[in-house]
Design a protein around this nucleic acid. Structure first.
Lengths: 348, 348
DNA sequence: GCGCCGCTGGCAACCGCATTCCCGCAGCGA
DNA sequence: TCGCTGCGGGAATGCGGTTGCCAGCGGCGC
């Protein structure tokens, strides 16, 4: 055959037809053998098809399959940023769970731009995945969320499932951490260690989950009879740098009064630490610091960071479960979060 | 119409046909308007089509488009792990460049299992992307690489492009850092700071790029007349924990002689630091430490880590360029890497 | 020995979109 | 006014795979 000499030029990919022909069966039969079908095929034929497929190096054209079936075994994950340790840990957890469920996952990154988020969702809709999981914390301000909601609604109407993680602002299936309770417990533990004068760093951007952490912390302090906490709450830009700058621009007097800084994320806690150090403050001797998220890659920070641990795997599992179980309506589910005390808050 | 009352049950997604019908044009015309076609369409019709599409919330079915066109604007990125800061930074860089080039990127994670890697490549082949970029450091040992090579070859034969990052062991387009030169320059700088007695941490798994870092470092020391360096090279497991354990199980006498530990990755350098600290060694006063990769998320480590900076964006750009430019053969390209001295190596 | 049923393979239609080809039409020059 | 050219719309076909349906075959019961 010309097989032997034809090594140049892009050859056409091997199709199911090729396999069928080589195995001497019809194309539907080959399809039934190679791609999970309910119908049985005679063992001898099955064997021939499998062999032919292997010899030819056949791979199912997943696009064609998706078109024909009208659906795919893929779930789409939308996150804010891939190099953010929180999101990458989340993505890893989701992928782990998805693999267990025999699902592919395709990741899309919004880069924290909500226009991009909308664009991505539209594009994803074009892929007709089984489900869309939105793990990015939504930024309410910039663009009309209704457009996004519309888009997601449309997607749901055509049989897709939408799952939100840590984002209770949209009317879809939601899985989130117990931000309020986690922060509250943390506050109580810290109060138990003798801390009394706190500085809280929230998010300048309106983020529901983040505000819950602030509220929970304040609530926890109130539980312990510390009621003046709400005086010292800052809302800098929601980032490492935002936290650092907030600390750096603090009045000297104000800073001197602070015993402990609680930031709503580990990332911001690190920014706060950087800011504190640039002002010559020693941690934890002068000021203690606590964060939220318990990010693994921060294990090497010195002093080790007191924070609130969130069960990513549980959240991921719940999310995948909701993504794959259709019909039922779960509404909102909350996963526990609990404080982890480390060296950055040794107590007074 | 029944439109008004039919709000229950999965409705069929809006297709191009629906749009065409509503706009009162033929389906090809709608196609030409909505998806980039060479042919022009009358402005009035174009308008009608666009409006109809918007009103109906039409989204191109990308799978169908891929089937019809036989190709897609997607590139597939294969990395070892998503929560590894190095890979997530790499992925972020690739996505940035891809977006500039108007490409989608779908990420697949091997979890460092080479069987999974093979499986993924087969699956990816089924998606018929424009290109496959393999950024994971290959693990040569476990499975016959030829199978992977076969698979990639097949993919190339059907018009796809394969690009490898930091992985010079396979016969495809390759972009990598100048590991050797980067490490060599670092060694020379450190020698210039007065360090003389080094401990090197390599990779127990055979990884070409990683070995180059060791070789380059040794070479650099030799440049400075330090020739006995090769005595103190350890090859622990290629991970944070591997490095930590290697340090912890060091003989007391051996440890006492060490002035500086060079690890082939920042990750391992951190493991080494953890190990050193657990043995009561102060950094950098007793022992200095240097790594490789210059991972951004480690900015908060104290003391800040001396390392070798790699230009991720340049690598990503080169990779995308190779992924999109067909016909030409680029073979192997090297991107510079240069040392960055920080607090972890103050000099003797 | 006949009829019925169940099993399994193949035919053909179909999924949603792109593209080729054909044809009508307007515009232009002669 | 006629013919030619060029543009743009539409019918038909194809992409790779799936699935409803029919037909043929073998097994079984009576």
């Amino acid at each position: 055959m010309s097989e032997t000499l034809g090594d140049a030029g892009p050859r056409r990919p091997v199709t199911l037809d090729d396999v069928a022909r080589r195995a001497g069966v019809s194309q539907p039969t080959a399809s039934r053998v190679l791609n999970g079908s309910a119908r049985k095929v005679n063992e001898a034929l099955r064997e021939r098809v499998v062999t032919a497929a292997r010899e030819l190096g056949y791979t199912t054209n997943l696009s064609a399959q998706a078109v024909a079936r009208g659906t795919s075994r893929t779930i789409a994950l939308v996150i804010s940023g891939i190099s953010d340790p929180y999101f990458s840990a989340m993505a890893a957890a989701i992928m782990r769970q998805a693999e267990l469920a025999g699902l592919r996952v395709s990741i899309a990154v919004t880069d924290r731009r909500s226009d991009r988020e909308l664009e991505l969702v539209r594009e994803i809709r074009g892929h007709q995945p089984l489900a869309i999981i939105l793990a990015g914390t939504g930024f309410l301000a910039p663009h009309p969320e209704d457009t996004l909601v519309d888009e997601l609604r449309r997607y749901e109407e055509t049989g897709g499932r939408v799952v939100l993680i840590s984002r209770t602002d949209l009317p879809f299936e939601t899985v989130s951490f117990d931000n309020h309770e986690g922060a509250r417990q943390l506050a109580r533990e810290l109060a138990g260690l003798g801390y009394r004068r706190f500085l809280l760093l929230g998010s300048g951007t309106a983020l529901l989950g983040m505000q819950q952490r602030i509220d929970g912390f304040v609530h926890g302090l109130a539980d312990e009879g510390i009621s003046h906490a709400a005086d010292r709450i800052l809302y800098p830009e929601f980032s490492w740098d935002g936290a650092r700058r907030a600390i750096e621009s603090l009045e000297e007097d104000t800073l001197r009064e602070v015993e402990l800084v609680f930031a709503i994320t580990d990332d911001m806690a690190l920014g706060a630490i950087a800011g504190l150090r640039s002002r010559g403050v020693s941690i934890p001797d002068d000021v203690a610091v606590a964060g939220f998220d318990d990010i693994t890659t921060l294990r090497d920070i010195v002093p080790s960071l007191t924070t609130v641990h969130v069960a990513l795997d549980t959240v991921a599992e719940e999310a995948i479960h909701r993504a794959t179980t259709d019909g039922e309506v779960f509404t909102r589910k909350t996963v526990p979060a609990y404080p982890v005390l480390r060296e950055s808050t040794p107590g007074v």
